[in-house]
Amino acid sequence: MAGFFSKIFGGLSKIDEDFYEEIFEKLVMGDVGVRTSEEIVEKLKELVRENHIKEPESCREYLKDLIKNEMKLDEDAYAFEKERSVIFIIGINGVGKTTSIGKLASMFKNEGKRVLLSAADTFRAAAAEQLNEWALRAGVEIVSGKEGQDPSSVLFDSIQSAKAKQVDVLLVDTAGRLHNKKNLMDELEKMNRLINSYYPLVHRENLVVLDGTTGQNALNQAREFSEVTKPTGIIMTKMDGTAKGGIAVAIQSELKIPVKYIGVGEKIDDLRRFDAGEYVDSLFD
């Protein structure tokens, strides 16, 4: 473990306020956020007291385990991959929603599933074209509408098609208007109701796509999307850069929404299941 830990845990000889301040700084620098970082530091202090830890060195595993345990996924986190499911992909513009759908489609397709894409983002210019391209790349079918068409009508067509073709996974792209715009929220709610009435009994999965380079606003985004639908997981994109995506820790701790996938590149297979261990390691790299 070069970098942070060797510097902090090797360099400082005792556990004091400077030590904790450096941990706090590292967490904040990873976009974990002030509040959650403070909480983590407090918890760590408690652990240090309880376990009579004297060496900064031994703090290392405690701190990492602390965050790892928080971020660990439930055993049934990926259950939807094995069932007939509708996956809503939600997120604001530019976070990599469409790309993530393409990657997911390809992943499911490679697992031998029947996949259908629903291009219900009828708002952004050329969104459907972009998704079409991904459908081609992944080799899956797609239902799309026209720019400006009611997204729910596209979804309705998609549901009919999904039923007729008995697809395993219906992946629904949604418009990425900024989350604080009421229209989009209403739209999502309407689409939710549509699924409930016309495609009941399928496994529902609502994945919120967040940009790994986004700071504290990602928490707001997750919170606001939680108000119209129940997010079941997060796709953290753009994790191949230098940003740490630490806001996921705050989201998990405040909203209890786990990260399920991370995007690590532009290629179609650059989507991974989330690994808490790796994530925490990279947070402190």
């Binding site: 620098m29 976009d31 380079t213 986004t214 606003n217 990602a218 230098t242 630490g246």
Partner: peptide, 12 residues
């Protein structure tokens, strides 16, 4: 630059 960018804005 995206106004929502986090700590990494300086690196970018």
């Amino acid at each position: 630059v995206d106004a929502m960018t986090g700590q990494d804005a300086v690196t970018v």
